[in-house]
Design a binder for these strands. Structure first.
Length: 853
DNA sequence: GGTCGCTCCGTTTTT
DNA sequence: CGGAGCGACC
């Protein structure tokens, strides 16, 4: 479409270099160090920029693009820049615009997935798809696989949607299809044969549904290019400069895509190009030369092997692309030397890497702070207090991030952050669009765009409940398949099937709704009617189905939150309509399908960011907490048995450390709750790899595990002296107390395991019951307070009134005096000066406090 | 056909 | 401890 109209109108050939000979300094090279400058100005067929963490690679990349455009070596529309997240793409576009004015018009800056969707939507008809295809997320894929496995009775062979799905995903990332796998498998193994059956059926079903899964987006684009050289030629010609960020995390499919895009256009394809090629585009042999490729990466930050990333792509780049130049960026502009020294020390233990050392001219900075908690709650409490101290010292909340290895670690952290009235946000985890009610509503939109999609259709039938059960669904599905109809058409003709009057009525009115919505979505060009905004469509669906009202009518307080989520979705749709007027339903669905965890990071939100270390890649914060630095968690137990697993975990640790600019905290707990009961945790081997002088242990592992256990000897920590043991015994008592008293709030997840069985069971059953009741009440009352509300572990002080001067007692901080109360309603915050620990801010409603008479 | 409650399952990281 | 899935009841 319009992208192609932006092709160079004046015919300036690729490679001509009209303006570099101008005298005077180049503002785009100004302020760059020699390596950076080389990385911006180097020209040639291929360039590898080895960019250590914080070495200014985004700057180099944006300047390089701006340089190409300003020097008239390329038009914006000839540039394709691939980033890892949509947020990174938006940021890059913004920075280029900042350098050149609105120059990014027509440029493709996007993720692999977004770029491929764009290509596939445009070319879908070429290979039997329709532009309105659905993108299946992993949950959709699993739903489809579940059906297939059941049909083939494959569950008796141990197949599950999850394991079959991940195997298919792995194969697709290797560009292997079902036939390809069948050719290499052990044909005498019935399990293998069955898997091929599953794989084949899955592919058929996807095609029938006019849907692609995540991996298809890349893989099918590669297939498209390979089977249609004329289509490939269009893109090979168009993109003269291809730049790929985070190249160390590309998988084979992505690598192949880049390979296809950087092939020269052969003479016989050149003839077929529209518009025809100009003389300036061609080389002596009548071909259009290959695009120039720039990749940026750092093999030390490769952390996605589990999803097929192949580190060899970057390691063997020079061999792969002949004539490649390599530029190394080693000077770091982000972190203090202490942080870098720790990072270097850790990553230095990976023997299979190219030697590289980050350094900075900025000085040592503060020492790294270490802390070992008695439990994960204790650890979380430290984090919350320390965040508050940093904030008091003038650091904005948004400059602070808390990292962890697994998403399940958020619970304890959230609990303590809520109590401390620290605003926070969790990136990733159970994402907004993965919530059941959101998927329900989205199913309507998906089905409107693609009425052949069985997953979306099947989902919307039962949401909300309307009397159409599995029986009716099966009949309709059979009918639709027999007659080759869309699901909507099948429903409109449901009168031809033997349904009872009630069911028939439900089906008919649902069919009418969908038909009406589909008409609105399509618009009517003849009557000058534009496609309806997405927000209107969604509102229509929600109004007609009464989804929100039905949720509100339920007693369960969680349903209120669900209703609010739906309203939030309407707001998201409206925002989309404003930001991209006329973009349409399809664009909205695409955007929603491809949001990444890091995409909702909002720098102006004024909140602390919680995320996994994987999500943290590419980001930076003034202060970083890495939590759960324990054996079994970091490195994760699962990775220890895998070949190269620990090395990848070490790179993950390296990524985490190098996100920090000024302050780094490494925290762990000596015990961690796994499932229900408590197990002992050992400090991570990575801690030993950091020179001891770099860490200032506020509480070392030795002080906590005590008694000269093997753990403490393994560490570089100072020997825990007298003060540690006093603290330990006091806390030990605390935690026992809170176990016994179910009503006191706090950490009841503790260890009931050791107490006598009979009373222990009764006690825990009672605790559970009380806990549930209180949680329900708390969430009911706390509505609208914080974006993240944890269920089941929040206490509620009801309408506790506090005024300056009041004395209170806190479960952990002891007694103190209220100095001020700010905020209103559920967000009332008490500022309390404690006798022992000084000033703290507490959320009146949720803090474990009581007023003293 | 829907709802409730029980049991059993399971936890790495994600576009 | 939490969620999903299934079986038994209404």
């Amino acid at each position: 479409m319009s992208d192609f109209e932006l092709l160079d109108p004046s015919g300036i050939p690729y490679g001509s270099d009209p303006s570099t000979s101008e005298g005077g300094p180049d503002p785009l090279l100004d302020g760059l160090n020699p390596s950076q400058s080389r990385a911006v100005s180097a020209r040639g067929p291929a360039l590898l920029i080895v960019a250590g963490a914080g070495s200014g690679k985004t700057r180099v990349l944006t300047h390089r693009i701006a340089h190409l455009i300003r020097n008239r070596e390329a038009w914006p529309s000839q540039i394709l820049a691939i980033t890892f997240t949509n947020k990174a793409a938006a940021e890059m576009r913004e920075r280029i615009d900042g350098l050149l004015g609105a120059a990014s018009e027509g440029m493709w800056v996007s993720t692999f997935h977004s770029a491929c969707v764009r290509i596939l939507r445009r070319e879908a008809e070429r290979f039997g798809y329709v532009a309105g295809f659905t993108i299946y997320d992993s949950a959709d894929s699993r739903a489809l696989l579940k059906r297939i496995i059941k049909e083939l009775d494959a569950d008796t062979y141990g197949f599950t949607p999850a394991n079959a799905g991940s195997k298919i995903s792995r194969l697709k990332n290797e560009l292997t299809d079902a036939d390809g796998y069948a050719a290499t498998m052990n044909a005498s193994d019935p399990r293998d044969r069955l898997f091929v059956e599953i794989f084949k059926t899955y592919e058929q079903e996807l095609r029938r549904a006019n849907a692609f899964d995540f991996d298809d987006l890349i893989g099918q684009t590669v297939q498209l290019f390979r089977s249609h050289p004329d289509v490939a030629a269009v893109y090979q010609r168009r993109f003269r400069h291809i730049l790929v960020d985070e190249y160390q995390d590309t998988n084979h499919a992505q690598y192949s895509l880049i390979r296809e895009l950087t092939r020269p256009v052969q003479a016989e394809q050149v003839e077929r190009l529209v518009p025809p090629a100009r003389a300036g585009e061609l080389d002596a042999a009548g071909r259009i030369p290959a695009a120039s490729l720039t990749v940026v990466g750092d093999s030390d930050q490769s952390i996605y092997a589990f999803r097929g990333a192949d580190i060899r792509n970057i390691v063997e780049f020079e061999r792969d692309f002949s004539g490649a130049e390599v530029v190394k960026l080693e000077q770091n502009y982000r972190s203090t030397q202490n942080i870098l020294s720790a990072a270097n020390a850790v990553i230095g233990n990976n023997f299979d890497r190219q030697e590289k050392n980050l350094w900075t001219a900025e000085g040592d900075g503060e020492r790294i702070v270490g802390f070992t908690g008695y439990s994960q709650h204790d650890e979380a409490r430290f984090v919350a207090e320390e965040v508050e101290d940093l904030h008091r010292a003038g650091l904005a909340y948004s400059d602070v991030a808390v990292f962890y290895r697994t998403n399940s670690q958020t619970r304890a952290l959230e609990e303590l952050l809520i109590r401390s009235a620290i605003p926070y946000r969790v990136l990733g985890g159970t994402k907004f669009y993965e919530r059941a009610e959101i998927k329900d509503a989205m199913a309507y939109l998906t089905s409107i765009a693609n009425p052949y999609d069985p997953i979306a259709w099947s989902r919307l039938l039962g949401a909300p409940k309307r009397g159409i059960g599995p029986m009716a669904e099966a009949h309709l599905a059979n009918f639709q398949e027999e007659h080759g109809l869309s699901f909507h058409e099948a429903m409109l003709r449901s009168g031809e099937l033997a349904f009872g009057p009630k069911v028939l009525g439900s089906i008919q009115s649902l069919a009418e709704l969908l038909t009406r919505a589909a008409k609105m979505a399509a618009g009517d060009p003849e009557h000058d009617q534009a496609p309806a905004p997405v927000g209107d469509l969604l509102k229509l669906i929600l109004d007609e189905t009464e989804m929100v009202e039905k949720l509100r009518a339920k007693r369960d307080p969680q349903d209120d939150a669900r209703a609010e989520n739906l309203e939030e979705l309407v707001a998201v749709a409206r925002e989309f309509d404003v930001k991209q007027p006329g973009a349409g339903l399809l664009a909205f669905l695409t955007e929603v399908s491809l949001v990444a965890a890091a995409d909702d990071l909002d720098d102006s939100s004024g909140t602390v960011s919680l995320m996994t270390m994987h999500t943290a890649k590419g980001l930076e914060f003034k202060a970083v907490f890495i939590t759960g630095v324990e054996e079994g968690l970091l490195p994760h137990q699962m990775s220890v048995d895998e070949v190269g697993g620990v090395n990848e975990e070490r790179r993950l640790m390296y990524v985490g450390i190098t996100r920090a600019r000024e302050r780094l905290y490494l925290t762990l707990a000596s015990t961690r709750a796994v499932f229900g009961d408590v197990s002992v945790a050992m400090p991570s081997r990575f801690l030993q790899e950091i020179p001891e002088g770099l860490i200032d242990w506020r509480q070392s592992p030795g002080e906590v595990t005590g008694r000269g256990g093997t753990e403490s000897r393994a560490l570089n920590a100072p020997r825990g002296g007298g003060s540690g043991s006093a603290g330990r015994s006091r806390r030990a008592v605390d935690s026992n107390v809170s176990f016994g008293s179910g009503g006191s709030g706090g950490f009841s997840s503790g260890s009931a395991a050791v107490s006598e069985p009979a009373s222990g069971n009764m006690q825990s059953a009672l605790d559970k019951w009380r806990e549930r009741k209180r949680a329900a009440k708390a969430t009911q009352a706390a509505g609208g307070g914080f974006p993240n509300t944890i269920m089941g572990s929040v206490r509620d002080n009801g309408d506790l009134e506090l005024a300056p001067g009041d004395r209170i007692r806190h479960d952990e901080y002891g007694e103190g005096r209220v100095s001020a109360v700010t905020g209103v309603g559920t967000k009332r915050i008490a500022h309390v000066v404690f006798d022992s620990v000084g000033e703290r801010k507490l959320l009146v409603k949720l803090a474990p406090i009581e007023k003293l008479a």
